[in-house]
């Protein structure tokens, strides 16, 4: 990929955390249709391979921009920040403490369907927290305070993971 052609420009979108989802989906579908490997003339193996690679890139780009967390990580990577490399000094001790407490609350929810109400309340609390922290992420990114942005990103990783854990616990209780 040309360095100038990041995932946002690929879908003709501005490079920002807030994303126009209908435009993202519409542009993705149009590009995917245009580069579909079946459109390549039979026998042209090089063109077929290029189309497959293009299609895979589009899928990857779409998945990255569709998920808020993946999009946030991608914006940091575009800013030259390695989000894979995490040292404990990148994590806020207060966030770890809070995560410990939240995980305890999830673990302490009563077994079976009795646990559904407390889990729903926790999920709502975490969902609200995610919104607040996403706003903080955008503010820190716009201010180009990258170490603060990275910290908030890692907090969001914890929050999204916890959200998923609660959903899994809910599904298990409901016997899915």
């Amino acid at each position: 990929m040309h360095p100038a052609e990041d995932f946002f420009s690929l879908f003709s979108l501005p490079r920002s955390f807030a994303v126009d989802k209908p435009a993202l989906t519409a542009n993705f579908r149009a590009l995917q249709a245009a580069s579909h490997p079946d459109k390549v003339a039979a026998g042209d193996e090089a063109a077929k391979l290029a189309a497959v690679q293009r299609s895979s890139l589009l899928n990857d780009a779409f998945a990255t921009l569709k998920s808020p967390l993946a999009r946030a990580g991608y914006l940091l990577r575009l800013a030259g920040i390695d989000v894979e490399a995490v040292s404990q000094s990148d994590l806020d001790p207060a966030v770890l403490f809070e995560q410990m407490q939240l995980r305890e609350s999830v673990a302490e929810a009563p077994a079976g369907e009795d646990g559904l109400a407390p889990l729903a309340a926790l999920k709502q609390e975490i969902g609200a927290r995610i919104e607040v922290r996403e706003a903080a992420f955008v503010a820190a990114l716009e201010a180009e305070e990258f170490s603060a942005t990275k910290r908030v990103f890692h907090e969001l990783q914890f929050l999204y993971k916890l959200f998923q854990e609660i959903e899994a616990s809910e599904e298990q209780r409901l016997g899915y």
């Binding site: 995490v86 994590l91 890692h154 907090e155 914890f158 993971k161």
Partner: peptide, 13 residues
């Protein structure tokens, strides 16, 4: 010692 691995969501005390 309180540490964490954000990618997996793990927290350890």
């Amino acid at each position: 010692g309180m540490v964490g691995a954000p990618a997996c969501g793990d927290v350890m005390r």
